[in-house]
Design a protein around this nucleic acid. Sequence first.
DNA 1: CCATTACGCTACGACTCGTAGCGAAAGCGA
DNA 2: TCGCTTTCGCTACGAGTCGTAGCGTAATGG
Lengths: 209, 209
Amino acid sequence: MQSRTPASRTGRPRSAAADAAILAATREALVELGWSKLTLGDVATRAGVAKTTLYRRWAGKNELVVDAVAELFDELELPDRGTLAADIEGVVLRFAAILARPEAKSGLMAVVAESTRDEALRERIRASIVDRQKRLVHTGRARAQERGELPPETGPEDAARTVDLIFDIVAGAVVHRTLVSAEPADEDWVRDFTRVLLLGLSGSARPGM
Amino acid sequence: MQSRTPASRTGRPRSAAADAAILAATREALVELGWSKLTLGDVATRAGVAKTTLYRRWAGKNELVVDAVAELFDELELPDRGTLAADIEGVVLRFAAILARPEAKSGLMAVVAESTRDEALRERIRASIVDRQKRLVHTGRARAQERGELPPETGPEDAARTVDLIFDIVAGAVVHRTLVSAEPADEDWVRDFTRVLLLGLSGSARPGM
DNA sequence: CCATTACGCTACGACTCGTAGCGAAAGCGA
DNA sequence: TCGCTTTCGCTACGAGTCGTAGCGTAATGG
């Protein structure tokens, strides 16, 4: 989690149970207190470890919360539902469900905000959250191209740019809907969103597929 | 700004210059220190006012930063460029330019994160930032319908829902691109994004308008 | 059984917070 | 002009958090 491969051949090993307890306690504290009122001392108490133990493993609140929140997104998958529209609706609904949880809401945006002034933190977020989920876009796109629902690649560079664009649109819209508009990204919304994403504003006025 | 209409008929009036100085100092501190290291004491010193004066006007860091950031978005406009695509590209580029400024980046996301646990703060954000800009979507949509680029309204409720959806997509995508992906929302990106927004994924594969 | 590392605990200086209390300043109405 | 009212700058304060140091103890591996 916090990249500890080198050295440490001998001596007492770090408790893996403590890691799990700390991350769980962090999520619990995020739910009860939110980001700003969350203190590392409190997390340590909840986890049943000493504050010094926590500081030996994480540099600070930012890194700790990134790891705690990242685990929430690990469950995301992209089941094959037969059509591109159905695939999108399914994964967006799952993503929205995770993002609706208070520990994700409070934690994720706060660390993203901090990452604007901390390049290392941004890299940590990208590696442990963003890039891990971007594969879903790749998969869904490849499937749709096999089905003939999307035109084939024009080149590897264009493909990467398109995937990035789609990811920004999808993740951005869901996050904005959930956190800024503070409205649920429910089935109705996801259906409307998917229609716009696939057909565009020009072709998505009339309801009914 | 902080809604001070009632009472206060007599006595020494509050200095309007102090308000401006405080908000400017807040933005300056956001640039230099970022959200987490910004302290109200420091802002007061920069603004040349006493810390107590600052606390008399704003309840805390959250409210202060919302007001300081909100002013950045006041300059947003929607000039008529003749086509819907050009209108979108223009306003998105302006929006992206504002969001690229460090004081907007650090501040906006942080207060949004805090607003997940503070209903009053979310309302303040909505009133002073989000709703003020949502009118741009209304305007652009109405223009496009006059030009025949978009189908006419099916009803006032559907229209409101559509405007909300478009706003979540546009604002969400730009924010995600700028803050999470940490890549510039430049002309190339905005062009690609606009094409997807108007034509959808199915119809937007080939470059060239 | 011994070197090595992790752990729990306590204590610490430094810092920020938000508020209280004071005297002085600046408007407004009579 | 005078007095009422409210704001302002300043100082000081208790409370709380931060991140670290120091110490003795616990748990491994050779």
